[in-house]
Computed example of a mutant assay.
Amino acid sequence: MTCVPDPVQVGQGSTCTATVSDGIAPTGTVDFTVDGALVADDVQLQPTQSGTSSTASFTTNTDLTVGDHTVGASYGGDATHAPSSGTTTLAVALVTTTTSVACDPNPVTAGQTSACTATVNGGGEPAPTGTVVFTVNGESVTSPLVPGAGGSSTATFTTNTALAVGSYQVTATYEGDARHSGSSGSTTLAVGLLTTASLLSCVPNPVQVGQSSTCTVTVSGGTAPTGTVDFTVDGALVADDVQLQPTQSGSSSTASFTTNTALTAGNHTVVASYAGDATHSGSTASTSLTVTPSGGGGNGGGSLINLNGLITAFNNISVNNNIKSPGSTNITNQQFPPVSSGN
Rank of each mutant, 00 (worst) to 15 (best):
M1Y: 01
P5W: 02
P7R: 03
P7D: 04
G11P: 10
T17A: 02
T19F: 11
A25K: 07
T27C: 07
V34K: 09
V43Q: 04
S50E: 08
S50D: 12
S54G: 04
T55Y: 06
A56K: 06
A56N: 06
D63P: 01
D68A: 15
A82S: 15
G86I: 03
V92A: 03
T98A: 11
A110F: 00
T119S: 11
G123M: 14
E125A: 13
E125V: 05
T142S: 06
G150D: 10
T159K: 03
T159I: 06
N160Y: 02
T161W: 07
A162W: 00
L163P: 05
Q169C: 09
S181M: 08
T195V: 10
A197F: 01
V203Q: 09
P204L: 07
V207F: 05
S212W: 04
S212G: 11
T214H: 02
G221T: 13
T223R: 02
P225N: 00
T226P: 01
D230T: 01
A239I: 00
S256H: 08
T259K: 05
L263V: 04
A265T: 13
S273N: 15
G276F: 05
T279R: 11
S286W: 05
L289M: 08
T290V: 15
T292N: 13
G309T: 04
N315F: 01
S318Q: 03
N322I: 04
K324L: 15
P326Y: 12
Q335I: 12
F336S: 07
F336E: 06
P337G: 09
V339I: 11
G342F: 14
